[in-house]
Design a protein around this nucleic acid. Sequence first.
DNA 1: GTCTATATACGGATAGAC
DNA 2: GTCTATCCGTATATAGAC
Lengths: 227, 227
Amino acid sequence: MKYEDFKKQVAISKHDFYRDIFAENRKSIRIKKEKTVVKNLERIFRAVLKISNQKGFQAMSMRELAQETGLSMGALYAYFSSKDELVEMLQKQSQAVASKIWKDQITLADDPREQLKVAVYSHLFLSEVMRPWYYFSFMEAKNLSEKERKRALEVEGASEQVLADIIERGQAAGFFTEGDARLIASLIKAMMQDWYLRRSKYVKTRVSIEKYADQVYRLLSSYLIRT
Amino acid sequence: MKYEDFKKQVAISKHDFYRDIFAENRKSIRIKKEKTVVKNLERIFRAVLKISNQKGFQAMSMRELAQETGLSMGALYAYFSSKDELVEMLQKQSQAVASKIWKDQITLADDPREQLKVAVYSHLFLSEVMRPWYYFSFMEAKNLSEKERKRALEVEGASEQVLADIIERGQAAGFFTEGDARLIASLIKAMMQDWYLRRSKYVKTRVSIEKYADQVYRLLSSYLIRT
DNA sequence: GTCTATATACGGATAGAC
DNA sequence: GTCTATCCGTATATAGAC
């Protein structure tokens, strides 16, 4: 499994991404011309991720965001009505896109052994494509509004359940060794998470995403797959 | 390996912990009576961890800290000269204590196979004993001062190197399978980290620290240990 | 040792000109 | 659509009374 192939295959259209955000938030966005909105939303969200991932979302001031985007504070508030709403837009759309891509990938396989492999590789590749958002999402989760925090927890729980289900099907079919599927799923998630949480370390030690994925999968299959 | 035994064995004396902080920071602490200082430092650090772990260190206001500790803002500033210094005291002492305990535990064993087991179990147990600090340290690392951030990275790198060294010795002795020791150490670290980063999930699904440690070690040894 | 009151700066958000 | 200027709340930190 090659990262470059995956990247081409999913080819998330940035334009579509921001157009969808526009469509979902017509009420709070005061600007009417789609072209302008898409252009500026891209600048804004790029800057939010950049600054937040350096110093945290709370520590990012609107003045700083204005500077980084090249827009004034007044202009910024034409695209959202509060800092909370800004982060809500980002979370909702990114989460929807990420979860759709992952599930689509898994559905391409049907044998549990193949599904497990696809699930691990495609999750890692996806987190590499959308790395700034994955990092942001983890680090800022606890600072979101009650509503957003709850949704983030549900999404995370659901993705672990996807892994656990694959493992259970594999166990039922006799391919995998017995054991607590949910707990094993947690450990897989932990290893996948490390790629985006401490990525600078892997850059420094020259570990590529493919090498990382291979190692995770090898560790996993030596435990799980019956021989 | 039992968690309760470990807990008794290390029995970190809280009194010693705060007395050491006092000794190291005589300059910035304006209060002279040790008894008073120890009592209040304990209140302060407990409150810092509690509030920060709920909403982040930056979002914790001094007014909030005053309320939680039962001290006034004026009184708080008799124990440190800035928010940054407060967090520096906490980091320095906790890091020293944690790293000493872990290394002492590992030295108790000499066979690499036994050392690996001790390293995994004792790190997990230790992170359970000092859980609020481990969580804080990870989540706030990037918001610390340049100096503190650098030191945190070094400590983290060193602890992964400890694991990698054990693995390499085990490989050289023919006990472990070949492979990239540093990368495997990273994956072990990732799994150990998950215990304190997403602990509420494990509480909810009723996974005990012992069960978690067993599962991590089983996964690991199935890959690493030659049969 | 600890308190209350306050200096000073910076935060998010908006009004109204262009 | 975007800008500048400003309101107003809250932040950290300190001064000085007790």
